[in-house]
Simulated scan of single mutants.
Amino acid sequence: MTKQISGERKTAYYFGIGLTVIGGLMFFSVFVTAAMNFGDFSNFESNARSSMFRGVGGMALLIVGNIIRSIGARGLAGSGVVLNPQQARSELEPYSRMAGGMVKDALEEAEVELGAGKPERVVMLKCRECGKLNEEDSKFCQECGKPI
């Protein structure tokens, strides 16, 4: 499994982010323009067409940008475009490693030791007379009092 993300995936990720930002700005510009031209109905048809183009185009760029960003981040198999579990596991490995590291960092910050709280092994001795289990350092049975 690779621990690095390929350059093509990084490019797709950043390209997707770029498209998402442009789409968001286009979509948001519809509301800014409407607020600035509130009550002005001159050239209404042209303004409506422009707003419709920016609104629908912005939403389309938001959707396409997020799809490309998701594929760039997780890879083709990791995002479910290609159905190959082995390839998906390989492509998602850097993120799995990162998530495990984040959990470890959080536990260290909370001063929780990994592996703490595991019970120690206890050896018990069975009394030959009554069958009671006694701790290993017992000299006499806790139930019947006979020597072990």
Rank of each mutant, 00 (worst) to 15 (best):
L19V: 06
M98L: 15
M98I: 02
R128Q: 06
Q87P: 02
Q4T: 15
C144P: 05
G18S: 14
S79D: 02
G131N: 06
T11D: 03
A110E: 12
L61W: 10
G80A: 12
F140A: 01
F27H: 13
F53V: 15
L61Y: 15
D105K: 11
F53Y: 12
T11I: 08
L76V: 04
V112D: 05
G80N: 09
F27N: 13
A73K: 13
I63N: 00
K104F: 11
T2S: 15
F44Y: 09
R89W: 06
A77G: 03
P85V: 07
G75F: 01
M36Y: 10
I71H: 06
E129D: 09
A77N: 03
A48M: 07
A88W: 01
S138L: 04
R74T: 01
S29D: 08
T2M: 11
A77C: 03
I71E: 00
V103G: 07
G131Q: 02
P85S: 06
V30G: 03
A99T: 05
E135C: 06
M52Y: 11
S138I: 04
G39C: 10
F15Q: 13
K118Q: 12
R121V: 14
G72Q: 03
E136L: 08
A35S: 15
S46D: 06
V30W: 06
R49K: 15
G145I: 01
V82T: 14
F140G: 00
V30Q: 04
S29C: 04
G78W: 00
